[in-house]
């Protein structure tokens, strides 16, 4: 075997990326590519896990058995999403323990959207329609990313997100045919979740230091602003369709660009939530830690059972 210098290997790696090759766990990759993927995939997995909390808040108060079954199924899907992505991240050489620890200690980041409270039943509609709607746009792009395990997890996830998206819209559409109070509740939820949903795509391209590198490696295929625009363009007509008003006076169709123009996003709010000053940052972290601590006896019992069983098998 000939020995390649790191530089030579990196050159070959870049050529593979340019050809559209998919990178698999055992393939050589630059350390920086590995680090970036661990960061992005870890944050994504944590977001799915923490994302269960705002909706879990309403499971016991869902207005009908049908809505309850649907919400349960959706939240369970989010747990699955977290697990697909965690296992994909582990192929890069980071352990589940380590990722868990980083989430529980507050070191890890997750999507800032989940640090907003869910104040009414209509928020379940707004989250499904807007938050999962934004997630679909992001994840559809990631399904074509250059790292195989991540792309495969995204394909699986995208299939499930459509249900999340539609059930949310159905909740709002139903409320919008209801009493004035119900309509106001739906509108209020959308007023609160619209801007944070736009922030889910991350900072504007000019303030996004990682974008160029991630696009070079085809981890990202589109910029944050492109994806945000795509989300806005497909969401505005859906809002109009059921009589919801999106809380942005500057929102208007531009027939020349064939896109909607929108108002300025409040990035100070975004960075403030990321820094840990969102309404629910503390509460979310505490809920995760409580769940982990309270589940300790289950993990111990399962370990003990597995240990005993293994002994018996050995003896037999």
């Amino acid at each position: 075997m000939e020995s390649h210098s790191e530089q030579e290997k990196e050159k070959q790696f870049n050529e593979r990326i340019d050809r559209g090759d998919i990178i698999e766990p055992k393939d050589w990759m630059p350390e920086r590519y590995r680090k970036q993927l661990i960061r992005i995939m870890g944050q994504h997995a944590h977001s799915e896990i923490v994302g269960m909390l705002p909706e879990g808040n309403w499971i016991t108060r869902a207005p009908s058995l049908r809505r309850k079954a649907v919400l349960l199924a959706k939240v369970q899907d989010e747990a699955g999403h977290g697990l697909y992505i965690y296992s994909g991240t582990e192929t890069l050489g980071v352990s589940r323990d380590q990722m868990n620890q980083e989430l529980l200690s507050g070191k890890a980041k997750y999507s800032s959207i989940f640090n907003y409270p869910t104040l009414s039943w209509a928020d379940m509609g707004a989250i499904g329609w807007l938050v999962d709607g934004a997630a679909i746009v992001n994840q559809t792009a990631l399904a074509k990313c250059s790292y195989g395990p991540y792309a495969r997890a995204m394909i699986r996830i995208c299939k499930e997100e459509n249900f999340h998206h539609k059930q949310g819209y159905e909740i709002l559409a139903t409320l919008m045919t209801g009493t004035p109070e119900q309509k106001a509740m739906a509108q209020d939820a959308v007023d609160r979740f619209w801007w944070p949903s736009l922030m889910m795509f991350g900072p504007s391209d000019k303030d996004s230091p990682n974008t160029a590198e991630l696009m070079r490696w085809k981890v990202k295929k589109y910029t944050n602003d492109d994806l945000r625009q795509r989300f806005i363009d497909r969401t505005v007509p859906q809002a109009e369709n059921i009589g919801l008003k999106l809380p942005d006076d500057k929102l208007k169709w531009n027939p020349d660009t064939m896109h909607y123009e929108h108002g300025e996003i409040n990035w100070d709010e975004f960075y403030n939530v990321i820094k840990g000053n969102g309404i629910c940052n503390h509460q979310r972290l505490k809920a995760r830690n409580d769940a982990h601590d309270k589940g300790a006896w289950v993990r111990e019992a399962a370990n003990a059972y597995a240990g005993k069983h293994a002994e018996k098998t050995m003896a037999a």
Binding site: A73, Q76, L83, A302, A306
Partner: peptide
């Protein structure tokens, strides 16, 4: 399909079902 963590093979099967075959 992917992977799961589990203490033994029975639980691995159950976790695999819950994670990779909900539909």
């Amino acid at each position: 399909a992917g992977s799961v963590h589990a203490p033994d093979k029975e639980m691995a099967l159950q976790n695999a079902r819950d994670v990779y075959s909900r539909r």
